[in-house]
């Protein structure tokens, strides 16, 4: 557009800019409305769906996990609050809060044995035993969700991955990379020796000894959360076993051994 001189030209240009602006706002508004409408449709569909499959959601762990995924995509968190449509209709909030409390109980009861680190699989099976009377089955996915809700209570709970396994940590221990690698090596037999750690990880004797001793000694309480008093523990994560003719000390890790299905009475 060729600019014409004079006041008339300026006025025309300003009017055009104004027109463009109004048009732009309209387009944006239409888009937002459309999006809002779509989202509202999504939500209402999701609610319909939830209403329809209420029982499946409550009873079938696989279905429940898929439902959670779907909710996450539309930006709905059924666990965000215990009030409101979702919680009231599904009672799903209560389900996870209850699960959370039971997880805390199990972690406390097994802590003397495993030092506050428990295999997710084992936690699940213990949870199953504890909930024998409850009708709903519980999956690992449910456990993870309940644990993620426990996080708000303090720094106590965390899920860490060691190799292929998931471990649930209930003491504020700081496991560094070295410790993690040792646990990974130990997954094969449930224990490691100093020599094995040196060989498999190509570490110096000093580094291996240091890491093993730390795991043996104690979980140092580096951060303080609400659970600090419940979980300030000094039990180590490892136990020694000296009864071997080769004279090599074995370091066992109750948190990854299947035998650790022992629960304190």
């Amino acid at each position: 557009m060729k600019r014409r001189p004079g006041i008339g030209g300026l006025q025309t240009a300003a009017a055009a800019r104004n027109q463009y602006r109004i048009l732009g706002e309209n387009v944006a508004k239409i888009r937002t409305d459309l999006m809002k409408e779509q989202l509202a449709t999504f939500r209402s569909q999701l609610e319909d769906f939830a209403r329809k499959h209420k029982n499946d959601i409550r009873k079938n762990p696989t279905f429940r996990s898929q439902f959670h995924e779907m909710c996450a995509k539309v930006g709905v968190d059924p666990l965000a609050s215990n009030k409101g449509f979702w919680a009231e209709m599904l009672g799903i909030g209560d389900f996870y809060y209850e699960l959370g409390v039971q997880i805390v109980e199990i972690c406390l009861a097994t802590r003397p044995h495993n030092g506050g680190l428990i295999n997710l699989q084992e936690l699940c099976s213990l949870l199953g035993q504890k909930r024998k009377t409850a009708r709903e089955a519980v999956s690992e996915d449910d456990c993870l969700r309940a644990i993620s809700k426990l996080k708000v209570l303090g720094s106590g709970f965390e899920v860490i991955s060691v190799g292929k396994k998931k471990l649930v940590r209930s003491v504020p221990t700081e496991l560094n990379k070295d410790h993690n690698e040792i646990l990974e090596v130990a997954q094969g037999q449930g224990y490691v020796t100093l020599e094995e750690v040196q060989r498999r990880l190509s570490w110096s004797a000093g580094r291996a000894t240091d890491a093993l001793e730390t795991l043996l000694k104690a979980s140092s309480c580096k951060s303080i959360g609400l659970f600090f008093f419940l979980f300030s523990s000094t039990e180590g994560l490892a136990m020694i076993d000296d009864g071997h003719s080769d004279g090599k000390r074995r370091y066992w890790f109750p948190c990854i051994s299947s035998i650790s299905s022992y629960v304190g009475s």
Binding site: H113, G115, M239, I240, P254, I259, S265
Partner: peptide
């Protein structure tokens, strides 16, 4: 027999105090 009876380290006296206390408790029972 309790489960800990099958876990080898329970047959070695544990050097860390708290772990040993738990171990001794289980054996006493």
């Amino acid at each position: 027999l309790p489960n800990f009876f099958n876990y080898p380290p329970y047959f070695t006296l544990q050097p860390v105090r708290d772990t040993r206390e738990k171990q001794v408790q289980l054996w006493k029972e």
